[in-house]
């Protein structure tokens, strides 16, 4: 990813806005952009979702493969999550092998979903020691206007919840819905103008500092954390965004459950 220049005026303006409790697009400190979620929109995927947050748009698709279980876990299938941000999604994203930025994206989303234990890997076993399902979640950015993390994480879990195991096509029984028992939700906070805000857009990302990603499960259990980019934060600041994440994840979970 090529890094554009950061206008000094933008940084000054963002900090003036923060002092007046304003944001560059008129939102409140903890207010997200308009959220739209759709599922089962890709005909070739076994599960899929499209998430739109403002001008950030992502797709998620679930595919299945048959794998041989690992020798140390003969009764378990696997989950693989990969994120790709191709040049289609923005002027600054470049072609070529996955950039460190897109690898970080995929891994942070992967940890949140995996560690929540939302997929029962034992149920993915077909013949112990011989055959098991590998669930592959591919995250794909269509338009990057900031905060791909939350969009990816939400699209990922929605696609998994709507996935069907294609057992008939692989001639190992009847199709059945993939069991997803939990709903991990990620909330990302960016330090902009000296304070943390929820769901930063691309201008706030450009003129901001560090970001923190929190994934919480249904019972507020913490499943993944990640601090990215240059910057220093305090325990009090973290406590504040953690408190907010508890509220936000509940709201997003309600949106997801209403689908």
């Amino acid at each position: 990813m090529s890094i554009p220049i950061v206008p000094n005026l933008l940084r000054d303006h963002l900090s003036a806005l923060a002092h007046s409790d304003e944001r560059i697009d008129g939102r409140g400190q903890w207010e997200g952009r308009l959220l739209e979620v759709e599922h089962s929109i890709l005909p070739r995927a076994e599960g899929s979702a499209r998430v739109r947050m403002g001008d950030t748009i992502v797709l998620a698709g679930v595919k299945f493969q048959i794998m041989q279980p690992y020798p140390d876990r003969p009764n378990q299938g696997g989950l693989m999550c990969s994120a790709e941000v191709r040049p289609v999604a923005g002027r600054n994203w470049e072609a070529g092998p996955p950039s460190p930025e897109s690898i970080e994206l995929g891994r942070v989303v992967d940890r949140g979903i995996r560690e929540s234990g939302c997929i029962d890997v034992d149920s993915l076993c077909i013949i112990p020691g011989e055959k098991a399902w590998q669930v592959i979640l591919d995250l794909f950015a269509v338009s990057d206007d900031g905060n791909l993390f939350d969009a990816f994480a939400l699209a990922g879990i929605v696609a998994l919840r709507n996935a069907t195991v294609p057992a008939e096509r692989f001639e190992v029984g009847d199709d059945y819905p993939l069991g997803v028992s939990k709903s991990p939700i990620m909330c990302s906070y960016h330090k902009v103008g000296g304070r943390f805000v929820y769901d930063a857009d691309s201008r706030e990302e450009l003129g901001g500092d560090e970001r923190i990603h929190i994934t919480l499960g249904d019972d507020d259990n913490v499943h993944s954390l990640q601090k990215g980019l240059k910057g220093i934060f305090t325990t009090d600041e973290f406590q504040e965004i953690m408190d907010n994440a508890r509220k936000r994840t509940k709201e997003i979970r309600e949106v997801m459950d209403s689908l």
């Binding site: 070739r44 797709l59 595919k63 996955p98």
Partner: peptide, 17 residues
Amino acid sequence: VAYNMAPFSTTDRMRPG
């Protein structure tokens, strides 16, 4: 021009790259 098929665009998953 870059034409690309997303991993989930086909019946069998398309490996990126």
